[in-house]
Amino acid sequence: MQYLVSVIDHRTNSGTPEEAIAIDAFNDRLRAGGHWVFAAGLADPSTATVIDGRGDEPVFTDGPFIESKEHMAGLWIIEAPDLDVALSLMADGSKACNRRLEVRPLLGPED
């Protein structure tokens, strides 16, 4: 199964050099274990643009689609056989990036 792991934060660009080193080491472990699919940090929510292309002309709106105190500051997509493996891996991921994480399954081909 694949899981989306969101990094929860209330600040942006708040990562420290120590955290970056820890995250790199953690990512190496994900790759070595065959769990790595993708990872990235995200720019500030204020840089987001909402698109609605359902009408005749696409409508573009400034800003994130949800205003909230906390936001998604980065993400992983990982491969894991079940939730226990995903949780146990990402408990270390949370330690590495020093943030809370949300783990959510991606819909598989048979869903």
């Binding site: 199964m1 894991a80 056989p81 079940d82 939730l83 226990d84 995903a86 146990s88 959510r104 399954p105 869903d111």
Partner: peptide
């Protein structure tokens, strides 16, 4: 949906 396994947890957990 979340893949919670039917398993006795590992010795560590």
């Amino acid at each position: 949906a979340a893949g919670i396994p039917y398993r006795v947890p590992s010795a560590r957990d």
